[in-house]
Amino acid sequence: MGLDYKLVLWNKHKKKYDKIFALSIVLYLVLFIVLTLLLNPEGTAETLIIRAFGSLAILMLHIILIIGPLCRLNPQFLPILYNRRHLGVSMFLAALIHGTFAIIQFHTLGNTNPIVSVFTSNLDYGSLTNFPFQVLGFLALLILFFMASTSHDFFLKNLSPKIWKGLHMMVYVAYALITLHVFLGAFQQETSLPTIGIMLVGFILVSGLHLTAAFKETKNDNIKKKKEEDGWLKVCQVREIMENRAKIFTVNQERVAIFKYQGKLSAIHNVCKHQGGPLGEGKIVDGCVTCPWHGYQYLPQNGQSPPPFTEKVATYELRVQNGWVFIKPEAFPEGTEVEPAKI
């Protein structure tokens, strides 16, 4: 876990998903190349590479962007989340190949620095037809480079998960830039109804899923629990929580997971310190709350990762009365030992 910075848990499922992704990438490239050679045999190898890797990067970006909201809407999609980081880095490499070949093809013939040429060869920013769309692609590539180069537990640890996640939300800006790069670039030069249709469906899917997930989360955030006179919140009945599992509640706008185990109840902050995974969707394994995303573990009674690991999450005080569970909304500092509530 947090002791070193190795990529987490190379289990057989991770390897299997990696193989599936790698095979799919190869299959897509082969299919694209064969179809292009059949339909447009006059095209050059450089153009073929630019188009094959550009379209591959866009397809992968769409898949990456729908994984997050899909998992929030339906936990059954969680297994695909495990490999999102590998998929992200692979997508950056595909975009890099596309960008590098495009710069070589279009900007290395003159005596201007190719990178400078990307920004200065076309200054028609007022036109939609001739908009300098390559600038948009270049800026998106810079964002993707920043994200791919920080996609390692070293940066996650040193930046803190909250800042890391906040910075990685820049992928949404990259998505907007790439969509405009395609619409103001490729589509203006070669208008093709099917490809425009596919991109539009992709946009509706990505934005629709993100907005649906966001509003669902807001709805959960706004659920008000009845506060008792002594400051405790009545949350649920004990029998509603399954053994070695948790139920998640919103308390003071933060998610809290209440776990039931060995005749006891404990409550911890729902957000894993690793990548912000939902601890309450995990289960208790070997006496530890285990994050469903990457297997980070915490002791339910104090929110601390078992030694030698050092991660800590906030804890909450619970009370059981007449089969009902009550929680004190004020969180204790991370890693504070709290006596579990006896059932």
Binding site: K162, K165, G166, M169, Y172, Y175, A176, T179, L180, F183, L200, F203, S207, H210, L211, A214, F215, E217, T218, D221, Q253, E254, R255, V271, G276
Partner: peptide, 24 residues
């Protein structure tokens, strides 16, 4: 995501979706 990140995520998509739709 914690509450602040969830709010940021929601606002980003509430701004991005109509803006992109208009440009597209």
């Amino acid at each position: 995501m914690d509450y602040r990140l969830r709010t940021r995520h929601k606002w980003m998509w509430m701004i991005l979706t109509p803006t992109l739709a208009i440009f597209l």
